[in-house]
Computed example of a mutant assay.
Amino acid sequence: MTGQPRTGENGEAAVGGLVVSDLGDRVLARIDRPATRNAIDAALVDALHALCAELEREPRPLVLTGGEGIFASGADIRQLRERRRDDALRGINSAVFDRVAKLPMPTVAAVDGHALGGGAELAYACDFRVATTRARFGNPETGLGIMAAAGATWRLRELVGEPLAREILLAGRILDAPESLAAHLVTEVVQPEDLLPAADRLVDRILRNGGLAVRLTKLALRMPPGAHPAFDDVAQAVLFETEEKERRMTAFLERRRPAGGTS
């Protein structure tokens, strides 16, 4: 991490309102700005960029979470009020959320409580979202005289469909946990004490698969329609030459071989 990280127990590093734990085969990052209800400010954006740089160098799944009862309340309004045209054109939040979305390995947002505005857009940028029974997702930006410009206008439409996205973005609808599950915005709803275990179970399922196959499949999902099937053919050609493919397919065939068989 950049800046002057504060190192705590279990290898945690805290900087810019982000507490990062290296868990070996995965990384857990927790937004920790309780005084502002985990509002996303410039320091947190810098910390997220630094985290992305680490995961680009050493690809591993990421679990991103907040505090008890709050994921992230959105952009820091005090800073947002001072921003002008050139700040908007820099894409301060949209750039880092796009970087999160493009991380090589899958990402999981573990959401307890409110994920609003920029907080919701950060969750939308993750590959998966697991939530507690008290989770709430929404984009109230138009009520502040601005728009949700860090990915919601297109990521949310892809996730839940245009009619519901319009209701959230234009009419301020807030989705509770059951509604989010029904809309496939989240993959699972659990009790608050089971949130991180549920995220870990999902990561465990991902890690049971071939790492390079997961990375290339995630990349294929991001390709524009015109890139297919050529991209898929080239990616598959790479995978066909790996030891991992040989090992996994051999193990599969060995498991299927009848007892006493010779072939």
Results as ranks from 00 to 15, higher is better:
G16L: 08
G143S: 15
D98I: 04
G145S: 12
L212T: 13
M249D: 14
L62G: 02
D87H: 13
T2M: 08
E82K: 12
P34A: 09
H49C: 09
R57D: 12
L212M: 14
C52K: 06
V130Y: 02
V15G: 06
L103F: 07
G260H: 07
R166F: 04
E54P: 01
D112E: 03
S21W: 13
P5Q: 06
E68A: 09
R84Q: 08
N10Q: 09
A235V: 02
A123V: 00
G261D: 15
L18N: 09
T7G: 03
L64A: 07
E9N: 06
R222F: 05
L28I: 14
E162Y: 01
T132Y: 05
A53L: 09
L62P: 02
E158A: 13
A109K: 02
A53E: 14
T7F: 10
F231L: 13
R208Q: 14
I31Y: 01
R215N: 03
E12R: 08
R247Q: 13
L55E: 04
A135C: 00
V234P: 02
F97S: 01
S180L: 10
E121A: 12
E167Y: 00
P163D: 06
G118T: 02
K102R: 12
K245T: 15
D76K: 01
V238K: 04
A101Q: 03
G172M: 06
L80K: 00
G113S: 06
G260T: 09
A171E: 13
P163H: 01
A237Q: 15
K245S: 12
S21G: 09
D112T: 00
A148T: 11
G113V: 04
Y124R: 11
G161E: 04
V96F: 03
E188L: 08
A120C: 13
A149E: 12
